[in-house]
């Protein structure tokens, strides 16, 4: 998959996950793969309401050092709350996510597709309208972190991605950088509305693959999981069995 072209467009977004329409029918990014949405952080404060206090009395003197000139929380605030950035790198500002679901369905919910009883080649030849207009592939991804100001943070971004923003696959280099810390595993274990064990296992396989299947990384991921799931041995086993490379 070329890293230069975008593979989807966001059609629904929240802080924790988003749904995107796949650019190509039947070609969503692989399950458990890492994707990114470029994010113009310099525009983010403009989107927020100006938080200048109404009167001198409302001013919180303790917050003063953390407010930047636009009225938003500054990098100092982030450091104070979340600690030092995990990774200082040259990544462009982006929101990172892991693909956890993909589906193909009628583009218009009122037009139900019926069986044609033809093979794939025949369908392509005789019914170009089906793949062109009648079907659409969607994929969902769970947000695991973002990069801003050259730093990667495995925490949820301040704002969700914008609707209709473009989704790109992450390069191997990006996967290596954003998975250096293993906090994303906690994010994945905490979201219940998906086959979490499968997603966790697939994302660890992806992260390992980006490191030439590094055994050390696999061990550290296993340790992190053992820590996270210390009260759920069965689930831990289920994930470890699925991680086998």
């Amino acid at each position: 998959m070329a890293a230069t072209g975008y593979i989807g467009e966001v059609i629904e977004a929240s802080t924790t996950q988003f749904t995107a329409e796949s650019r190509e029918l039947y070609s969503p990014p692989p399950f458990g793969s890492f994707v990114k949405i470029p994010w113009k952080i310099e525009q983010a404060p403009e989107a927020l309401p100006q938080t200048s206090p109404a009167s001198q009395d409302d001013k919180d003197p303790f917050m003063e050092p953390f407010l930047d000139r636009a009225g938003s929380f500054s990098a100092d605030y982030r450091t104070a709350v979340h600690g030092e950035p995990e990774e200082v790198c040259n990544l462009q500002p982006a929101i990172y996510a892991i693909v956890h679901e993909a589906s193909t369905s009628p583009a218009d919910s009122s037009r139900r597709i019926r069986a044609y009883w033809k093979d794939e080649d025949q369908l392509d030849r005789e019914h170009p309208e089906i793949s062109e207009w009648m079907l659409v592939t969607h994929f969902k991804a769970v947000v695991i972190g973002y990069s801003a100001g050259g730093a990667v943070n495995q925490i949820l971004p301040p704002q969700p991605p914008k609707i209709l923003s473009h989704v790109y696959p992450c390069s191997t280099e990006e996967v290596r950088i954003i998975t250096k810390k293993l906090d994303f595993l906690r994010t994945l274990t905490g979201i219940g509305s998906m086959p979490a064990e499968e997603v966790i296992a697939a994302s660890i396989r992806e992260a390992c693959a980006a490191r030439n299947n590094s055994f050390d990384y696999l061990v550290s991921a296993g340790r992190e999981l053992a820590n996270l799931l210390k009260d759920d041995y069965d689930r831990l086993q289920a994930i470890i069995r699925r991680v086998q490379l």
Partner: peptide
């Protein structure tokens, strides 16, 4: 709607 020409609809 093209058929067999290879062009996209």
């Amino acid at each position: 709607l093209p058929y067999g020409t290879g062009a996209r609809p």
